[in-house]
Design a protein around this nucleic acid. Sequence first.
DNA 1: AACCAGGAGAGAG
DNA 2: CTCTCTCATGGT
Length: 207
Amino acid sequence: MKPLSLYKRLLKEYGPQHWWPAETQYEIIVGAILTQNTAWKNVEKAVKNLKERDLLSPEAVSSARVATLESCIRPAGFFRQKAERLKHVTSHFLGYPSLDAFFGRPTSLVREELLSWNGIGPETADSILLYAGGHAVFVVDAYTRRLCERLGWPHGSYEEVQSFFERGLPRDAALFNEFHALIVEHAKRYCRKNPLCPCFIACARST
DNA sequence: AACCAGGAGAGAG
DNA sequence: CTCTCTCATGGT
């Protein structure tokens, strides 16, 4: 069983996921921070609150009071940290002429810069790179690790898992986009309550 | 009523 | 470097 085979199996099982569920680049960035260790359902409520107050642009978030941001994103949990992180990250983005200018540089350079910002770790950086910036990086999350363990694949450090997938797949942002979304969809349906999902069994058997 | 959710950072050893 | 703790709300 190899990464590409798993991808094909998941795509056939669930179909295209159309990620990231957001209307703008900046909304993706906001969502990536809000979803840290938080159920997406709660993020949707927070984003809805921000949208109702017209707080989904860098300028609006930058000029909004922290207390206002906090009250909007409370449903997403860790609201004090996340309000601070939104402010901090947004201020960095505002140092560039545009988001396209920010992302329009070599992947490794943009990634290192994102990682240097407080509140952005490996997964959030890669989510932003892939889903907001269109860079071909493979996003590793808790679901990905759990799947790797069950398949007997490398499941150590973030970089180890990431390079395993990136070495076993064509360097294609659209594929990485779909693959990560499929892993999340798969995990939501089966991997917590229902560990013996049909897809996993099929994947494990077909080696 | 514990446990988990599309993590990250700070501190200890 | 690798643990461990904290941050916090909402659903099962």
